[in-house]
Write a protein that binds this DNA or RNA. Structure first.
Lengths: 331, 331
DNA sequence: TTGATTTTTGTAATCGATTACATTTTCGGC
DNA sequence: GCCGAAAATGTAATCGATTACAAAAATCAA
């Protein structure tokens, strides 16, 4: 290959990694030879010598969750643009695999990590936090971690949900919660309370139904809701799946949504469009979350300084006003 | 590290890759030294020399599709069990990236490929088909390809759908199709026709509505359906998303499902449980598809002979009889 | 044209494992 | 205790790129 172009292997290497260092004529000869032979540099050799793998480990809490697959699409776009590929580390909703994933990074098998799970994996042979492996957190923020993060304006959106309902005349607004140890749940709940206060309503006296982000917990909340007196006229669910479970149960109990109860969800999953009535919700910019996270990580892996203003991004989540919210029924 | 154990690097290497070649005492000394130093072999060096990457390229037609994320979970399980990781090649519903993905494999960056897209990627610098890179097709079969394949019994299930409806007394059964160039669509349509014949009904005179697997095409089919005379009493949709779009539109038009029209879907997506009425459908064993494909691929990559009986697997797809099917209305 | 300076290219060491081959050790049988 | 075969271990070449350093070529000023 090098012979065909009449140059040394060093020159070939330079042609591929630092073309500006070559005379145009030489570069052209090498390029032509590369084209003719269909030469591809061996990745392993390059990695071995240059100590870069051009690979990123993406830690996902649950790969079977469609939410993350959309985020992954953005990650894919952001990384492949810069020549990076990615490995997927699926935690499958448990922490058992964390040490294994941490070690992949610590062993230098990847150049950086993208954390979608709201936690820095623990239990590796060394501490990831203390290492200088570039990491970026996406979707679920990691409190106290000194790494770039990209999340959505959970708190702000939740406030807006309450404001939207208050504007429609609702005064008894309930909250359908996620798991209490979850970061986004806490943000959304906090925003809900702030929104209540801002609307001149008492957050203290609002009804809070427990939930865990599943459809089933939405159903359970609906059952509890039916027995609540006085019955709230609106409900803000911390995610769409619960909201849909809630709405479905309401309807089978003969309660008309939105006439008797307004419901607001969160996430903007695809099926929010397909249920009856269509769900009023906040559309998370999933692809964008992944894309921005990937872009930040690439910068970090290249050793570029990250603009502090970019280091922690809060993306806006637009409210989609649709069929499940309406004016409060007259008292 | 080798010094700490008082052995050569060759022995360390053997301790890690072929422990049975060492005397137990030596092995123990090395193991202890490995533990104490926290040594991890450099993957790049190993790959360079051993010419194995322990990585698989998974080609996905659309990573944002939840169907595939579930399959990926199975793939993850099957591969990680044997120490393999995987890269994701996302085609994003187009063929533009095929050459790029083919080249990743041809350049030896992975040890094998798992194809979920029903096609062998074309346009690489050499032909993948002619190469000896291990490949396995999953979900969507690749006709004529001499590689192991894992798919579901599409044809059999479609026959069963018709049988189920016929058993309920339906005689005018319509078919809501997928894109005509899609392999699984053709199988399901074929099974539908066979089922009609088996039930003593004319497949020729059945109504076929065009579709493309999207919710919107289910809505469109419903609109056409409403104008069909005489109106069929049952419909078999080639996937759940269309079935759900169809049902939703029927209901808003005041047609009661299943009393006036029975509907059967295909795939068993999560939301089939959540719609009203719950959808009668076939649950695809998604995780299992991925797991089996991964297992076959590992065998192929290890150079093991594949039992011909295992080389093309057709997994059964159980029918879930739920709310969207009922006895045909009396004529 | 010449010599100094800069740019381009080549030579050879290097990354860290695996592995063919050589050497040493172990072990059984006599 | 010795010999030969078998098992265990060591030595050194090797995988294929990158890159420090050296050498050669190009460029420029006088």
């Amino acid at each position: 290959m090098a012979q065909l172009a009449g140059v040394s292997t060093a020159t070939v290497s330079r042609a591929l990694t630092a073309p500006q260092k070559l005379r145009p004529a030489t570069l052209a000869r090498v390029t032509e030879a590369v084209r003719r032979t269909g030469y591809t540099p061996n990745l392993a050799a390059r990695t071995l010598r240059a100590r870069r793998t051009m690979l990123v480990l993406v830690v996902v809490p649950d790969i079977a969750n469609p939410f993350f697959s959309d985020v992954l699409r953005g990650v894919d776009e952001g990384l492949s643009q810069h020549g990076y590929g990615f490995l997927i580390g699926n935690l499958a909703r448990s922490r058992a695999k964390e040490p294994q994933l941490a070690n992949i990074a610590l062993a230098g098998q990847v150049d950086g990590m993208l954390l979608l799970n709201g936690r820095i994996p623990q239990g590796g042979r060394r501490s990831l936090t203390a290492s200088d492996i570039p990491m970026v957190a996406v979707c679920e923020a990691i409190e106290g971690a000194r790494i770039p993060q990209v999340e959505v304006q959970n708190r702000e959106a939740a406030r807006q949900a309450v404001a939207h309902l208050a504007r429609l005349g609702h005064r008894r607004i309930a909250y359908l919660a996620g798991p209490p140890d979850n970061f986004v749940e806490r943000e959304r709940r906090g925003g809900f309370c702030e929104g209540m206060t801002a609307a001149g309503l008492s957050a203290r006296s609002a009804r809070f139904y427990p939930g865990d982000f599943t459809f089933a917990s939405g159903v359970a909340a609906a059952t509890a809701f039916l027995q609540t007196r006085p019955r709230p006229s609106a409900l803000f669910a911390a995610n769409d799946e619960m909201a849909i479970g809630f709405v479905k149960t309401m309807r089978s109990a003969g309660i008309v949504v939105p006439d008797q109860v307004s419901v607001v969800g969160f996430d903007g999953i695809e099926f929010a469009d397909f249920v009856e009535p269509t769900l009023t919700t906040f559309r998370q910019p999933r692809r964008e979350l992944g894309y921005r996270g990937a872009t930040l990580l690439v910068a970090a892996m290249r050793g570029e300084a990250i603009d502090p203003a970019q280091a922690h991004q809060y993306l806006p989540v637009p409210l989609l006003e649709r069929g499940s919210t309406a004016l409060a029924p007259a008292v």
